[in-house]
């Protein structure tokens, strides 16, 4: 639930593109409780970043906070966290309807996607992006 464990170990992180920030600000106008992102995995819509109104999905012990985008939390299941350890998630927007039960990216017909920057680790242990 926090990034206390970061230390010198590599951990995933998240940033958002201008389009994603704009979409989030649109969504926040209609969702006063705020919104939260959950990194999905598995069948069909697989790695889609699912976006819900805050509280729709109960945040549990399994969720790790990857980071905040525009004040909105981005969570990943602890079992996926390790796989994503070298990954900087870049939240972006593309055309197309949202996957699963996710909110659209601001307006209908747009959905959130992720791109990734794999961060190699240099000798000092810090991220070498």
């Amino acid at each position: 639930m926090d990034q206390q464990e970061q230390g010198s170990e590599q951990t995933p992180s998240v940033v958002a593109t201008a389009a994603a920030l704009e979409a989030i600000s649109q969504l926040l106008k209609g969702h006063s409780k705020g919104i939260a992102f959950f990194q999905s995995g598995g069948c069909c819509d697989n790695s889609a970043p699912m976006c819900f109104e805050e509280g729709e999905m109960i945040v549990g012990k399994v969720d790790r906070l990857v980071g905040m985008v525009s004040g909105c939390p981005y969570y990943i299941d602890f079992r996926q966290y390790e796989t994503y350890r070298n990954s900087q998630i870049i939240l972006d927007v593309e055309d197309g309807e949202a996957d699963g039960f996710s909110l659209p990216a601001g307006v209908e017909g747009k959905h959130f996607i992720t791109r990734t920057k794999i961060c190699a680790r240099n000798a000092s242990g810090s991220h070498n992006v």
């Binding site: 959950f38 990194q39 999905s40 995995g41 598995g42 069948c43 069909c44 819509d45 697989n46 889609a48 699912m50 819900f52 729709e56 999905m57 109960i58 299941d77 996957d99 699963g100 039960f101």
Partner: peptide
């Protein structure tokens, strides 16, 4: 339900 894990979790919730 058949699909990905986050929606699966929501369905269970």
């Amino acid at each position: 339900f058949t699909g990905e894990t986050v929606t699966g979790r929501l369905i269970m919730q």
